[in-house]
Amino acid sequence: QEELVKAFKALLKEEKFSSQGEIVAALQEQGFDNINQSKVSRMLTKFGAVRTRNAKMEMVYCLPAELGV
């Protein structure tokens, strides 16, 4: 569980995922086979993730800066 949270936060820091499906796929690539869209959705809510525009003006998920991840 701890490893999943770390990987999840690291992915969001990249600010390149525009959908929950993309986050699920990226986590599965890292070996988290039991991850699915509903789990990702709950984690996004739990950590207060928001959708914002990145440098390329794409809408992407990211974590609020005050979490200091």
Rank of each mutant, 00 (worst) to 15 (best):
L12K: 00
S38D: 14
K56Q: 13
A26V: 08
Q37F: 09
E14W: 07
I35G: 01
G21E: 14
A55C: 04
Q37C: 05
R51K: 14
E66I: 06
I23V: 04
R51V: 13
G68S: 09
F17D: 01
R51D: 02
K9Y: 13
L12A: 01
M59T: 06
E14V: 06
L44E: 01
A65D: 13
A49I: 05
D33A: 13
Y61A: 01
D33N: 14
A25D: 09
E66T: 05
E3N: 12
T52S: 10
A55D: 14
N34Q: 11
K39W: 11
R51I: 15
V69D: 15
S18N: 07
S19F: 10
A26Y: 11
E22L: 05
N54F: 02
V24P: 00
P64L: 04
N36T: 12
K6F: 10
R42Y: 15
I23K: 00
A26C: 03
Q28I: 14
Q28F: 09
Q37W: 07
V50I: 14
G48S: 05
E14I: 07
L67C: 08
M43R: 00
A7R: 05
M59P: 04
F47W: 07
A55K: 13
G21Y: 12
K9T: 09
K39N: 09
V40G: 00
R42H: 14
K39V: 13
Q37A: 12
L44M: 06
Q20N: 08
S41L: 08
G68C: 06
A25M: 11
A26R: 07
E29R: 09
L11I: 09
G21P: 10
K6I: 13
V50M: 09
Y61I: 04
A55E: 15
S38T: 12
E3T: 10
K46T: 11
E2R: 10
A25F: 09
M43Q: 01
V24R: 06
M59S: 05
A26L: 05
G68R: 03
E14N: 05
E3P: 10
E66P: 08
I23H: 00
T52K: 15
F47L: 13
C62D: 02
T45L: 11
Q28A: 10
E15R: 06
Y61K: 01
N54Y: 03
S18E: 07
V69P: 15
G21W: 14
C62K: 11
C62A: 15
P64T: 05
K16I: 09
N54T: 04
F32L: 02
Q37K: 15
E58A: 05
G48A: 04
D33P: 14
E2K: 09
K46G: 07
N36Q: 06
E15N: 05
L11H: 03
E15P: 09
G48T: 02
T45R: 14
M43N: 01
I35L: 07
K9G: 05
M59C: 03
C62V: 10
E14Y: 06
R53Q: 14
L4F: 06
E66H: 11
A49C: 04
L12G: 00
Q1C: 15
S41W: 08
R53S: 10
I35T: 04
N54P: 03
K46M: 13
G68K: 04
Y61W: 15
N36E: 07
G31W: 01
G21K: 13
Q20L: 11
L44W: 02
V5R: 07
R53E: 11
E2W: 10
Q28C: 06
Y61L: 04
N34K: 12
K46L: 11
I35S: 02
N34L: 09
Q37G: 10
Q30V: 08
F17C: 12
R42K: 12
V5C: 15
R42F: 14
S38H: 12
M57L: 12
E22W: 03
V50R: 09
E14H: 06
N36P: 05
N36W: 04
F8S: 00
V5F: 14
N34P: 04
S38Y: 15
G21M: 14
Q20S: 10
M57I: 03
F17G: 02
E15L: 09
S19W: 07
T52V: 14
L63K: 02
Q28T: 09
N34Y: 13
M59A: 04
K13H: 08
S18G: 13
Q28N: 09
E2A: 11
A10C: 07
V40S: 01
K6G: 08
L27G: 00
L27H: 00
F8Y: 00
E15W: 06
A49H: 02
N34S: 12
C62R: 08
M43H: 01
T52M: 15
M43S: 00
E29A: 12
V60P: 02
E22K: 07
R42W: 13
R51W: 12
E3H: 10
E3Y: 10
E14A: 13
E29Y: 10
E2T: 09
S41I: 08
S38I: 10
G68T: 06
R51Y: 15
G21T: 12
A65V: 11
K6V: 11
C62M: 12
Q1K: 11
Q1E: 14
Q28H: 11
K56D: 12
L11E: 00
E22M: 09
L44H: 01
L12I: 07
V24W: 04
L12R: 00
S41Q: 13
T52N: 08
I23E: 01
F47N: 04
R51A: 05
T52P: 02
A7I: 07
A55N: 13
Q1R: 11
N54M: 02
Q1S: 11
A55L: 09
K46Y: 14
L4V: 07
E29I: 12
T52F: 07
M59K: 04
I35K: 00
K9L: 15
Q20P: 13
L44S: 01
L11S: 02
Q28W: 09
Y61Q: 02
G21L: 14
K6C: 15
P64V: 05
C62Y: 06
A26N: 06
S38L: 11
Q1D: 13
A10I: 08
